[in-house]
């Protein structure tokens, strides 16, 4: 192959990878709707909101999310944080469309999954999701 064409292909590869990187980064931390499914068995008794974090052992963002949620639950006793190993919870991951770790299920007082926090999201974003989960559902 001609050297110039090869360089052009490489430039296209780098441009494509950059575009993909921008998209992946934008989607790697976000809040998604919960399906509302009942996960009462995972909810911590007495907590208004339980944050169930699914983690894998090869995931740096999981450590960052653990720190964020640990700080929040230490400051607010109405919130509970549990961390589960995703390899022990393949069924749970399938039920709630978990495709990356950390994914944190936001459970309300009835154990319903109100939202899913994908990636290591910022504390203020977690707080908004927690506040939303405290509100009673209008049509449950």
């Amino acid at each position: 192959m001609d050297f110039g064409i090869a360089l052009l292909l490489i430039a296209l590869l780098v441009a494509g990878a950059t575009t993909l990187g921008v998209i992946v980064r934008a989607r790697s931390t976000r809040v998604a709707n919960g399906c509302g499914g009942d996960e009462r068995s995972l909810a911590v008794e007495g907590a208004e909101v339980t944050l169930v974090q699914l983690s894998s052992p090869v995931c740096s963002a999981c450590v960052a999310m653990r720190r964020v949620l640990g700080t929040m639950t230490a400051a607010d006793s109405t919130i509970a944080h549990r961390e589960l190993a995703v390899e022990d919870e393949a069924e749970l991951a399938r039920r709630h469309s978990v495709f990356s770790t950390p994914t944190t299920l936001v459970l309300d007082a009835h154990g319903r999954v109100r939202s899913r926090l994908i990636g290591a999201v910022r504390p203020d974003v977690v707080q908004r999701a927690v506040d939303a989960a405290r509100l009673e559902l209008v049509s449950a």
Binding site: T18, G21, V22, V24, R25, S28, L54, S56, P57, V58, C59, S60, A61, C62, V86, E87, A90, A93, R94, V98, F99, S100, T101, P102, G119
Partner: peptide
């Protein structure tokens, strides 16, 4: 360039 964490995604897919 973007701090992408392969393990965060691929591991879950392997589990699933």
């Amino acid at each position: 360039a973007f701090g992408y964490c392969l393990g965060c995604q691929l591991y879950v897919l392997l589990v699933r």
